[in-house]
């Protein structure tokens, strides 16, 4: 290896920034969707009705048993098929980004449902019983009593999972979506400067994730004091 040429990063700054924006969009949508559907999945798993709890448990265990990349391939294959079945459109009805988003929401909702289930179970059962005695229905008891406390207890774990999710967004590389890593890889192929570009990607991820996990740790300490 001869001299390094770090200028290549500046030359390709526009496409790298675009890639990072794609990564962040995917991260934000997957995080919101994962927490939303993860909460519903956790509630379904804890339901008294077998018709809800069994399929929810099956879905969560299935997703957790296969590699993330396998799940991405599955939803990348299934999403366009299912969408075109419903809309009647053929071919390019959904783009690669939509398929990736669906895959990430599905996988993250399975991961988050396990965290949220533990959070709900950490609330003493006397509380929902008291809520019921006061005349609150299931959704009121969940929305006003159980979930706010569960989320508070689970906040550090959920944020740690968010950092892992941000790292996992790089896996969309396998379906050739141009995220941050994909943009760097493309620029590397064009210029032959993969060493500089991959090192740059590693440093950027490292700084973001280290800062985020440090912040989570501080928050955890503060929450521990408040409790």
């Amino acid at each position: 290896m001869g001299e390094f040429d770090w200028g290549v990063i500046w030359t390709y700054r526009a496409s790298l920034v675009d890639g990072m924006i794609t990564s962040l969009q995917l991260f934000a949508i997957a995080l919101a969707g994962g927490i939303f559907f993860g909460t519903l999945l956790a509630m379904a798993r804890l339901s008294r009705w077998k018709a809800l709890s069994v399929p929810a448990a099956g879905f969560v265990n299935l997703i957790r048993a296969i590699p993330f990349i396998m799940a991405i391939f599955w939803f990348y294959f299934l999403t366009p098929m299912i969408v075109s079945k419903f809309t009647g459109q053929q071919g390019e009805a959904v783009g690669p980004f939509t398929s990736a988003v669906v895959a990430f929401i599905m996988v993250e909702s399975a991961y988050y449902s396990e965290i949220i289930r533990a959070g709900i179970q950490s609330i003493p059962s006397g509380q929902p019983a008291a809520a019921h005695a006061l005349g609150l229905n299931y959704w009121q008891s969940m929305g006003y009593v159980v979930l706010p406390q569960a989320f508070r207890n689970m906040l550090p774990v959920m944020l740690t999972q968010a950092v892992i999710l941000f790292q996992d967004t790089s896996l969309v590389y396998v379906v050739a979506l141009k995220d941050f890593l994909g943009a760097a890889s493309k620029a590397g192929q064009l210029t032959g400067r993969i060493v500089e570009l991959y090192l740059f990607v590693a440093v950027v991820f490292f700084i973001i994730c280290l800062a985020a996990s440090r912040a989570v740790k501080r928050l955890q300490a503060n929450l521990a004091v408040a409790r």
Binding site: M1, S185, I194, C209
Partner: peptide, 29 residues
């Protein structure tokens, strides 16, 4: 722990496979 935990696994895979042979002495790479 902090170094290996805060870089995505896929990026680490590329560092070992593509980058490592280029940054160690040429003959080894």
């Amino acid at each position: 722990v902090e170094l290996f935990r805060n870089i995505p696994l896929l990026v680490q895979m590329f560092l070992w496979y593509f980058v490592m042979p280029e940054v160690i002495p040429t003959a080894w790479g």
